[in-house]
Design a protein around this nucleic acid. Sequence first.
DNA 1: GGCCCGATACTCT
DNA 2: GAGTATCGGGCCC
Length: 191
Amino acid sequence: MPRLPRRFFARPTLEVARDLLGQRLVRVWNGKRLAGIISETEAYIGESDLACHARFGRTPRSEVMYHAPGHVYVYFTYGMHWMLNVVTEMEDFPAAVLVRAIMPTEGMPLMRERRGRPDAILTDGPAKLTQALGIDRQLNGHDLCSREAVLFIEKAPPRPNARILRGPRIGLGNTPEPWLSKKWNFKIRDS
DNA sequence: GGCCCGATACTCT
DNA sequence: GAGTATCGGGCCC
């Protein structure tokens, strides 16, 4: 299956977040493929979105969100976790989709080694999947659409039985309304 | 299944 | 100095 082209990401963030569900996230590590089907995403859109890291404008951390669509924004949080985001919309407009969960399909032995936990909880959270795939600061700013990418997203066959659930974003804590309640979280529920 | 809590270090008003 | 786009362990159903 072909890789998603840059124009896929150069669209409204909510559309990208929804359409990323069911696609295959691939990490190439030492020539081996680690992959999984994206099953949960979340949109963060612009400086006015008070849950978005660009709410303070262009800073060293948020810089990558202002880059061209198809780049990857990887950030560190809670003193120990890495989060994977895909930059969307047009260059200089800061927006991204957080990948919150994947269903593992390839390279599970290495994922198990990295996680040291049961298969059922290998990649079912944003920090779990980065640990399983070996994604950290080194990949911040990486271009998913370049020929030499070691991280990219492949178009996967449609999932006819998949239902898409929408809800509020997770873990926003003190974020004020209306941002707290925006239904910008998307997930697949297979039936 | 659920709730509570500590770990941990980086970001920025 | 405060807050954080989380996880896992301990505990209780």
